[in-house]
Design a protein around this nucleic acid. Structure first.
Lengths: 193, 193
DNA sequence: CCTTATCTTGAATGTATGTTCAAGATAAGG
DNA sequence: CCTTATCTTGAACATACATTCAAGATAAGG
């Protein structure tokens, strides 16, 4: 006979950013309490425990990413030019010291791999969906004769996500925008040649 | 008037493997105590604190990796064929569920980036040295006319490490050996074309 | 407007954490 | 072989952690 008061999206985005910044283990309930403006009781009532909140935040992250992805690839440009632009967006994300500097999914799976199968399964399936979405776009581009390739859309998508993961990791070692953009360009060239 | 008793390399390799498995934050002193067979007093006397032990373990890791790298690239094969073999070694490492499944340097920098500048600086410099070592080999290959490229050895090396980081991350989402080997082949092809 | 189901609050709990330290053990120097 | 410097041992410490729960607050149903 009473409805919850807090804004779910606000809470999940705040939690999501905390997990992106500090990692899963180092994001304490104390910190989550602060950033979400929720008391422990409310968090545990709504999400069960820290892992539950993390998984909910992951879901929100995936939703937000999907929306960004769909918005980019649903405009009327050619798929290849959109893809080139998409890579530039990723490079920019890697540079600006703010949010989205890292991918929550890859960062988290790297952290918990081998230690939390439940979280890993969820993250893996999200990342596989991402790869599949890229494969779909590449298949469309092939169907439209935007480019020709000896490889399948699936193989191309795999190479592309590998490159994206690689750029994001490389950005941790070298923040030079020119180097990162060059990597993106080389990756794109390797894909369409 | 008394010499330390424990075997430094044994201790550092055990610590190194623990950090690789559990990550920096989740590797407790309790765990480190167990795997190194050292009592807290000894650890703190020898390495100061957990971070000191981690940095020493990192140094050991880099030494071991350097030795593997040098052994591979100092045989009498062509550099390109050695590189191709090296990529296969990395793919194998990603598959077998044992040690070396992940790179301690990239896993750790991904975890602590933005939160521990001291550790980041050390890891970054190690990873930069790795990139530089690959650039040297590629420069030699170019000098030997093993292949021709419109890109500099430095640019090629950057692309190569990006690919290696990417393969290692991709392996967290997909353990299929064929897919991983295909990525390595595609990466090699993109490099020399 | 009263009841009641549900949400919010925040103090309390037990455990695990990184670290310290004093007592005991032991190898090298004279 | 005794002295002394250094290492080893493991109990103790304070703090930080994830989680619980009972009391208080509040919105909806009758």
């Amino acid at each position: 006979m009473r409805t919850a008061e807090f804004d779910t999206e606000f809470v999940l985005r705040k939690a999501m950013h905390a997990f992106m910044q500090y990692g899963y283990a180092k994001t304490s309930m104390q910190k989550l309490k602060e950033v979400t403006h929720l008391h422990p009781g409310s968090i545990y009532a709504a999400y069960g425990n820290k892992k539950g909140l993390f998984l909910a935040a992951t879901e929100q992250y995936q939703k937000d990413r999907n929306q960004q992805f769909t918005a980019l690839f649903n405009d009327q440009q050619s798929i290849l030019s959109t893809l080139k632009h998409y890579l530039t967006v990723i490079v920019d994300e890697c540079i600006e010291g703010e949010v989205a500097k890292v991918c929550l999914l890859t960062k988290s799976i790297s952290e918990v791999e081998g230690n939390d199968p439940q979280i890993c399964t969820v993250l893996r399936s999200n990342l596989n969906a991402y790869e599949h979405a890229l494969a779909e776009q590449l298949q469309k581009a092939l169907d439209n004769n935007e480019f020709v390739s000896s490889k399948s859309a699936q193989q191309l998508a795999r190479f592309l996500v590998m490159g994206i993961y690689g750029i994001r990791t490389y950005a941790l070692t070298n923040q030079d925008p020119k180097s990162l953009q060059q990597l993106a360009d080389d990756l794109f060239a390797a894909l369409v040649n």
